[in-house]
Design a protein around this nucleic acid. Structure first.
Lengths: 235, 235
DNA sequence: ACCTGAACACCGTTCAAGT
DNA sequence: ACCTGAACACCGTTCAAGT
């Protein structure tokens, strides 16, 4: 597959501009971040190239380097803005399990809107971005206030995050991946997929939402069982 | 970050060969697949370029196109070989929980070796590939023989798979993503990351392996709790 | 049929020149 | 200080030429 051709659709006509410092500044980090989100939305992480970003902003690629150090710095900028959209309002107010559920569902929903950010979130070291650190601090404080032992907390949070990443990956999957093409040759697979479909219909949920909930509750129950925290203590 | 420089380390010296059809055929799809696996192992998916692949095979890049249609076709070739490598030998022999653990660990390990296959595995309907249907049938039969109710089995298997996909995504993440850059400003985050690191050291495990085990056990415990299966019955 | 080598259209990043 | 434009070292893919 050849690389996608540059398309002028939706891109403003290139502004011919004389070299040298412009009278009014054209770029700033906010404009770059907005354009990067737009670019990643239409073309994916692979399509977020410095040249494409520059085209979208009607500047030359090298102009970007006056505001960001590298392409990786652009990715960090996006990650920072993503972390700020997660719902941590439950911690300190609701019981831990409810606060975690609120956080996890918002995390899933935000990532489902932008699944292309998963590789980004996973790849960029969070510790270097201030807002992201703050977000994790809130979650960890929630666990700690609910009485979970120190050595359990990072593991519990990390496992939840792992599960969320997997659920996002699954979001792009069709609903009936397991249904056999030939039911007669795989009767048990046919029967269990039908039974699950019946449960889904009965509850009136979207299959992947029901699955997410089942896994989330199983994880919280299982980890509570392991570490002996109540999971119902106020965070 | 500039792109990695081409390195001649481990690459055989280029064979000067006259143009035109060689007397003996040099390439075939098996050789290409083997070289692609080797390349991906040493340099990651990003490092699996057609040029690098060609260098490894001591041919020019364009020679590859006599045997594969595109770079994507190379990835599909790798995916074909994946399905047959998962360990389902525990089902019907070991207790369900052990059989599942064996399957899940092999799944994780195979995908960690080739994480670029995750999007393909998720997107491509499994029912169309012969090995994969057989593989899922074995897993489902294991649950059923252990007494799990029909409506629980697809959900349980799906949630496990979701968690595995997430764990694979995390495999590319650095180990210390949560450690704050400034411990004084995030004392609880500093304390809990240290406590987790201590647990890891004490058990002598790799951090992500310990995390995977914790989540896997939590999921199985939690789902067992929900559906009341023993999880210890022979599969 | 199956290889080489040149070519085309990309990519991230650097840097001198210009205002 | 902040832009342009040329340059460097990459990339996937195509295709005429050669045996």
């Amino acid at each position: 597959m050849p690389p996608p051709r540059a398309s002028a659709l939706g891109v403003p006509p290139p502004v011919r501009r004389a070299p040298g410092r412009p009278r009014e500044q054209i770029l700033n980090r906010d404009l770059i971040a907005d354009a990067a989100f737009a670019q990643i939305r239409t073309s994916g992480l692979r399509g977020l190239t410095m040249r494409a970003l520059a085209r979208r902003l009607a500047v030359t690629p090298s102009a970007l380097y006056n505001h960001v150090a590298s392409r990786d710095a652009v990715l960090a900028l996006l990650q920072e803005r993503f972390a700020a959209t997660l719902d941590t309002t439950g911690f300190g107010i609701l019981p831990l399990r409810d606060a975690l559920s609120k956080w996890a569902w918002s995390y899933l929903e935000r990532l489902r809107e932008r699944p292309e950010l998963v590789p980004l979130i996973v790849a960029v070291p969070l510790a270097h971005t201030p807002y992201t650190t703050l977000m994790y601090q809130r979650v960890v404080t929630g666990f700690s206030a609910a009485g979970w032992p120190d050595e359990s907390i990072i593991a519990a949070m990390s496992v939840l995050e792992t599960y969320i990443f997997g659920a996002v990956a699954d979001s792009e999957s069709p609903d009936d991946v397991y249904r056999p093409k030939d039911p007669e040759r795989s009767p048990l697979l046919a029967r269990t997929t039908a039974a699950f479909a019946a449960t889904v219909a009965e509850r009136g949920r979207r299959p992947r939402d029901l699955l997410f909930e089942i896994g989330l509750e199983a994880l919280l129950t299982g980890m509570h069982h392991r570490w002996g925290s109540s999971g119902r203590t106020r965070a």
